[in-house]
Computed example of a mutant assay.
Amino acid sequence: MNTKEKLFLRKSAPEKSARMVETIYGCKWSLTVYQLLANNINRPGEMVKSVEGLSTKVLNQCLKKNIEFGILNKINYPEIPPRVEYQVTEFGQKFMRILDDIEKLQHEIDA
């Protein structure tokens, strides 16, 4: 009989952050949206006009996911006509640095 005490428990991926990375990479437009925001294109109409193949419906779904994760923040301006802009949150900046590191890792793997 083995009376040795187990020192380690099974380690699993962090549930929320792993799902977040999977969802963002699974959405083919999220990385493009981040690129647009980095280039100061932060209004939905500008985003749709700036990217071939991006529809308003798909953009809105993508933006909604990113807001739910806390990566982006939606700013509503009380103007007529209404104006909406998106910005990266402090958490989103951290998350995007992690995505940049993953991309660098991919380049190392490909080399």
Rank of each mutant, 00 (worst) to 15 (best):
S12W: 04
G26W: 02
E90L: 12
K11N: 14
T56F: 03
L99G: 10
Y86T: 05
N39G: 08
F8S: 07
E52S: 13
C27A: 01
T32Q: 13
V84K: 00
Y77M: 12
I71Q: 00
Y25D: 04
P14Y: 03
M96K: 08
T32M: 05
L7H: 07
A18S: 13
Q87S: 14
K11D: 15
I67S: 02
A38Y: 09
D101N: 06
P82V: 00
D100P: 07
K64G: 04
K49H: 13
G53D: 03
I41C: 07
E46H: 14
R19V: 08
I75W: 00
M1I: 11
I67N: 02
Y86E: 02
L105D: 10
K57A: 01
A13N: 02
N76G: 04
I98A: 11
L36G: 01
P81F: 03
E90C: 09
V21W: 13
A111Q: 14
S55V: 10
E5K: 11
Q93W: 09
L36Q: 15
L37R: 10
Q35V: 02
V58H: 06
E79V: 15
E79S: 15
V51D: 02
N73D: 13
Q93T: 09
R10D: 01
G45F: 00
T32P: 04
E85G: 08
G92K: 05
G45I: 00
N73S: 02
F91I: 03
N2F: 02
K4Q: 04
I102A: 12
M1Q: 02
E108T: 04
I71K: 02
A111W: 05
N73C: 00
A13V: 05
Y25S: 11
